[in-house]
């Protein structure tokens, strides 16, 4: 099975994000980055399928040079090789343009299965994988927790809402967007980290892939959210704040 996993580097979830001077994006200097969480689960699913059925796991990621560190992390966890679509204007591209980059890099590889996380932690558009499926002309299923290989394709467990699930049979090649929590994530071993240094990372550019950046939708500005409620902040030491809260819950909320 030839499995391609599209991964995204996103600001670390504990990083303090600040709006930059243009008010169109965040301040990127000094920002810590990490592998997008649901993409980590997509990678894990890919690695487990390869361990069961053999084949190859190729990670694909688009973004500036810094993305290289996230690609190395995926290789250290066990991916066989990688394609880095080097583009500095990733922030100006919309989901369609990014999906076009990914699809153009994947197409010549003729993968049996394309996996990616269901949505990114930064933009949260939740559609890149589905668009890639359309661009590659493959069937897809989204919000997937489990994947079983069958004779003609895959059987997947899809998460619906409110605790409901569904099983779907799909012919391959196919695209699956992976929900977090379906597997236990592995850590890179020391040996893995060492091996990753020798694995192939092929660099491609948007120009080589013939994908322009012209967006259909434009992120005009970003702002801090407005408060929906007026919050009473309770200060002091832990004990003081706790005592104050108990008073509030007793005499203002009447819940104690």
């Amino acid at each position: 099975m030839k499995i391609m996993v599209a991964i995204k580097q996103v600001p670390d979830r504990d990083a303090q994000v600040r709006i930059n001077a243009s008010a169109k994006w965040i301040e990127e200097s000094d920002l810590q980055y990490a592998l997008n969480e649901s993409d980590a689960y997509a990678l894990e699913e890919g690695l487990q399928l390869k361990e069961k059925h053999g084949g190859e796991v190729i990670v694909v990621s688009a973004g500036p040079e810094r993305v290289g560190s996230t690609i190395r992390e995926a290789l250290a966890k066990g991916a066989d090789r990688a394609i880095h679509i080097v583009c500095d204007d990733i922030g100006e591209r919309d989901a369609l343009s990014v999906a076009r980059l990914l699809a153009a890099a994947m197409k010549p590889e003729s993968p049996d299965l394309v996996l990616t996380g269901l949505q990114s932690e930064d933009l949260g558009l939740g559609q890149t994988g589905v668009i890639v499926a359309e661009l590659l002309g493959m069937p897809h299923a989204s919000l997937i927790l489990q994947v079983e290989k069958t004779e003609t394709g895959v059987t997947v467990k899809q998460e619906l809402e409110e605790g409901w699930f569904q099983t779907i049979e799909l012919p391959t090649p196919a695209v699956l967007t992976i929900q977090s929590g379906g597997n236990k994530l592995r850590y890179a071993t020391l040996m893995g980290i060492k091996r990753a240094k020798t694995k192939e990372v092929r660099q491609l550019t948007a120009t080589e892939l013939a994908v322009d950046a012209a967006p259909v939708v434009v992120l005009e500005r970003i702002t801090l959210p407005k408060k929906q409620k007026s919050t009473q902040m309770l200060s002091g030491t832990a004990a003081e704040a706790a005592a104050a809260l108990v008073q509030k819950l007793k005499f203002e909320v009447h819940v104690l």
């Binding site: 994000v17 965040i26 932690e121 992120l219 500005r221 970003i222 959210p225």
Partner: peptide, 9 residues
């Protein structure tokens, strides 16, 4: 955006 830390227009 950013898990609710920002709004985007």
């Amino acid at each position: 955006l950013f898990q609710g830390r920002m709004n985007g227009s």
